[in-house]
Amino acid sequence: MQSPDPGQNYFELFGLDPGFDLDLARLHSQQQRLQSMYHPDRYVSASARDKRTSVQLASWVNQAYETLRDPVKRSRYLLEIGGAELPDDSQTTSDATFLMEQLELREEIEACRLAENAMMQSEIIESRLSQRASELAAEFVVAYHAGDLDSARVSSQKMQFVQRIHQQLSELQYELEDA
């Protein structure tokens, strides 16, 4: 089975100007508008093929939405449509300072697991991570709009690192809540 027209750019799909800074409210309302056209609930009495197609189309819209909504995925998508080579998932950064910072963050997260006020500690780290993520996003925007795709790629990769650490932190917070 073919997938729905892959030539369609996600930004065009939602009627948004391509760029990192997005009108998220508009993205959300466009997403709902497209789903109200393509969602399988609209094709319950249609032929089997139309049903299959609607599942594929609605999946595609969801994927497009997910890609644009998430800052890291959005930055990678921008690089992709800009023709830049994507950073490999397994690739590590060569920025030694950044690496040190990441290591320290990981250690802090491990340390706060044993801390007395673990949840509060984790929330402090969390706000630092959010802060760091927006700094990196700002770096990405500057590089991307200056057409410096190499630097943009580095920023995008760092954003991904920070996001992963954030996920680790969330896992820890789940554990703390369970306890």
Partner: peptide
């Protein structure tokens, strides 16, 4: 034929967006 209609449909969805704007 169905493939052609698919593309048209998405373009229509976009056209709809422009009317919104």
């Amino acid at each position: 034929y169905v493939a052609k209609r698919m593309n048209t449909s998405i373009k229509q969805a976009l056209a709809g967006k422009q009317i919104d704007e």
